[in-house]
């Protein structure tokens, strides 16, 4: 299945600035695996050391949260969009760093 993975702004620095990546994958997990093997630095931002999706990163298949589907085993079909939705906190952007 050819699916599109949408990369949110904070993570684009790890995908060579690309906002979306197309790949062939039968499940959401496969698509994420494809993404992190292409862009190695992305891995630690999405997965814990033991390979679980981090709890502050949500993954959606089209408009559904995969936690309420079959998680990473959720099957994809052609033309599906997978979105990575990390928590962002900015509001007034107090300069800090």
């Amino acid at each position: 299945m050819v699916v599109k993975v949408m990369v949110p702004t904070p993570l684009r620095q790890f995908t060579g600035k690309q906002a979306s990546i197309e790949c062939t994958a039968a499940t959401v997990g496969e698509a994420l695996g494809h993404l992190t093997s292409t862009f190695g630095e992305l891995r630690k931002h999405l997965f814990t050391d033991d390979g679980r999706l981090r709890s502050f990163v949500n993954v959606y298949l089209n408009d559904e949260d995969i936690r309420f589907l079959q998680k990473e085993n959720t099957q994809t079909k052609d033309g599906d969009t997978i979105s990575i939705v990390p928590s962002i906190a900015g509001g007034s952007c107090r300069e800090r760093n």
Partner: peptide
């Protein structure tokens, strides 16, 4: 998220 894993506004 643990501090440091998400870029802050100052970086962003």
């Amino acid at each position: 998220p643990p501090p440091g894993l998400v870029p802050s506004c100052a970086e962003g």
